[in-house]
Design a protein around this nucleic acid. Structure first.
Lengths: 166, 166
DNA sequence: AGTTACTTTCAATAGATATTGAAAGTTCTG
DNA sequence: CAGAACTTTCAATATCTATTGAAAGTAACT
């Protein structure tokens, strides 16, 4: 396999993977392209490589910056902005965890709190409250575990943590 | 808040959460309904509760059985099938991990293997191979960590694991 | 201040995915 | 084995999300 085929294949797969991870296809493909490109690329270069519109490229580059998966780089004497990917996989996973935790787990915790105030007025409502309490307990544990995880540094995670549970 | 409002709210939120987890809305809502229902329900009861079509209900019940998130229950002298949810949250998360690992991580590992055969013929291809090797290393670690996790039992996970990283 | 180079926004449109409903299939029962 | 009770399938359709392209915005240089 040659280099271009390899890059192409990686970009397509990363795009597919992304869609299952709450990251849209283009966003994941841009990230993939930048991941396998040692130097920084301009929006124009990204647009051409992936054959997407300027608007699409721009919006998803902003989203990637927002998630901290891509960093901006300015070159002296050049008005264009250049972009380079975060290449430490643990940092990438952490960003995803932080964003999804905020978007998914936290609203769920809020709802669980609200619905645990269901009045106890019959057997059915007591059973409901018990089930909700279990789910809440589990979710809270997961929540604080994730908090701890994202505070961990890359070396500890890859070197120690992954080995402990192995 | 009364019981019905609480159930309704839970079902809607679980449905929303599900869509971010590779589980479609209806599938997640059926799961939610069964989660907060102590006894088993028939397809007809599910259909009525959620106001969805028979076809939709059927397909998603099958999917839930397939994922192991819902179990079938037969009642003596009744031709209908009844369904009851897996209520242990760790079992639920494990099912999701198993399915998503198969659908997402494993195909990615395969692609990473394929593309690490890119010929070393210039600096760029060497850099590409290095980046791919890093990602592969990380992914393999994640893969085997997840394997270990799903083999763990609920008590160990909730009682020990979540406390270790706390 | 005007021109050029580049970036952002957003309504229209395309594309992907979920849902319905009706028809076909299955299994039980008298 | 005919009919009833229930389940499954699938093409048509609806819904939800991503993408485009054109117009507006912004900043640098002359």
């Amino acid at each position: 396999m040659n280099l271009d085929e390899g890059k192409e294949k990686f970009i397509q797969s990363w795009g597919t993977l992304g869609t299952s991870w709450g990251i849209n296809r283009t966003m994941a493909q841009i990230h993939a392209l930048l991941l396998v490109t040692p130097q920084a690329l301009s929006a124009e270069q990204i647009r051409c490589s992936l054959k997407i519109s300027m608007g699409n490229a721009n919006m998803n580059i902003r989203a990637l910056l927002d998630w901290g998966l891509v960093h901006k780089q300015l070159k002296a004497g050049d008005r264009k902005e250049y972009f380079i990917a975060e290449k430490d996989m643990w940092e990438v996973v952490k960003s995803v965890i932080v964003h999804r935790k905020k978007k998914e787990l936290e609203p769920m915790l809020k709802v669980l709190d609200e619905i645990s105030s269901v009045e106890s007025e019959c057997e059915a409502s007591d059973e409901f409250c018990n089930i909700v309490r279990d789910i809440k307990l589990f979710s809270n544990k997961a929540d604080s575990a994730l908090d701890k995880l994202v505070k961990a540094d890359s070396n500890w995670f890859v070197g120690t943590f992954l080995n402990i549970i192995k």
